[in-house]
Design a protein around this nucleic acid. Structure first.
Lengths: 242, 242
DNA sequence: CGGAATGTTGATATGCCTCAACTAAAGTGG
DNA sequence: CCACTTTAGTTGAGGCATATCAACATTCCG
């Protein structure tokens, strides 16, 4: 099993430089882990948690609960991500976080984190940067769900998830885990289940990507990126993994 | 004319507590101001600015430039907002910022800000919190443009902008400035100009809100909030202004 | 006063949602 | 291990909402 500290450090190093002291602070953090079942909630809307989660294995998602009981999925998070980092400085959760497929998470106490930030501001800056990249991903999602065709939306989402999985070493050459249902895809991209299905078939037919039994297979990366108008700049990674 | 320092301090106090030392740091910042014409770009996609803007007067917007030359507007910012705070810790702008109507902005040098953060981490936390609220607004925009009807979308946007304007003391009892064109509204909410027009007429007909010559008039707040399913929790303000 | 930008309206076409029926796969208990 | 139930995925038909296009009205600005 991956060590929580190492997962976080590797992640932060994708975009930030960490000094000896920051590394020491990170290693000193307590981080009890916890297993989650598929679909289990990690935090609910309205909570005021005293810890922030760090994904060690599997995938979790942020979502809004809608008045009609349905969900709007906001973003997906994999190993190294802190899906509720915002709770560090905002009292009440305005969204929930749940597991997509089985997941393993570590809990980092806010108190310890903030104490470490006070001692070594550059550590705060690294995690701040992380939250800023999250925000960039949100912005791209606004554009994706507002300005692109259904086909492009889905392709773009697949591109992003595959690209990020590659960057974190979680993907093969041409595939990565994505244990998501069509209904959830629909609640991510703002389309009905029927349309999700038919759009997925278009991507299959164009031999660019496929999603089968929880595995995303990228058959033709450049074609998929073109269909999705994918430009990875907004992910702000140091080196392109693809 | 409003003083840049005071505008920022008042804004941060909407959600954060500032000590004597943090206030001193803020007052010590240099902040040359600059006037912007309507539609003038403040920063472009790809830039790597060395200052962050603070809105003193007027309104600015973040937007993505799309391959077809059109835009997707991401968010709107008024007095006290820092529309490119993310540039503090992210090199390359993944979006642009432009003025909506005439605007006045101050430029805060990154170097000075980061030095102040290092001396007084709580100041960093206050601005970090500001960027986290931005992110919450982005998340809400994802939901707005993905899961709501056209009518609800527009109503929600109006609610948010009016509510925020009220919180910052920029609104009358029932109206605030919103010098936005129908085309821009369409590029914000993901609808065609024709639909923007007709949706606006629905809101007029329901006597809930109106947009005329750059002024948003809220005729019936509770009705508008209901149409837009507006729940202000995500703005994380200390006290409700409405 | 003329020209450009912005807003308004109607007609048409189409892409997507809804609903419903059905199939396939996964989980459960005897 | 199989029958049963439940959940997830697939497909078609029909109707509606919204994009698109085109013509026109209005406002703004030089």
């Amino acid at each position: 099993m991956a060590q929580a500290h190492d997962v976080l450090i590797r992640k932060l190093r994708e975009h930030s430089r960490l000094g000896r002291e920051e590394l020491a602070e990170l290693h000193a953090l307590s981080c009890p882990t916890r297993e989650l079942e598929p679909n289990e909630d990690l935090i609910r809307q309205g909570d005021d948690p005293s810890v922030s989660a760090l994904v060690i294995e599997g995938m979790v998602a942020r979502y809004h609960l809608l008045p009609n009981g349905r969900r709007q999925y906001i973003s997906f998070h994999m190993a190294g991500d802190m899906p509720d980092s915002q709770a560090l400085f905002i009292d009440k959760m305005d969204h929930a976080v749940c597991a997509i497929g089985p997941a393993l998470i570590a809990s980092l106490p806010h108190k310890e984190l903030i104490a470490a930030f006070n001692r070594h501001p550059p550590l705060a800056f690294a995690i701040w940067r992380e939250t800023l990249i999250d925000a960039a991903i949100f912005r791209e999602a606004i554009t994706n769900n507002s300005a692109r065709t259904m086909r492009a939306r889905m392709a773009h989402l697949f591109c992003e998830l595959f690209y990020r999985a590659r960057a974190t070493g979680l993907a093969d050459d041409d595939s990565c885990r994505l244990p998501i249902s069509l209904a959830q895809l629909g609640e991510t991209l703002g389309m009905s289940i029927a349309t999700v299905n038919r759009t997925l078939q278009q991507l299959r037919a164009s031999r660019s990507a496929d999603l089968r039994s929880g595995q995303l297979v990228v058959k033709n990366w450049s074609r998929l990126a073109e269909i999705g108008q994918f430009n990875p700049g907004y992910l702000h990674l140091k080196k392109p993994p693809v």
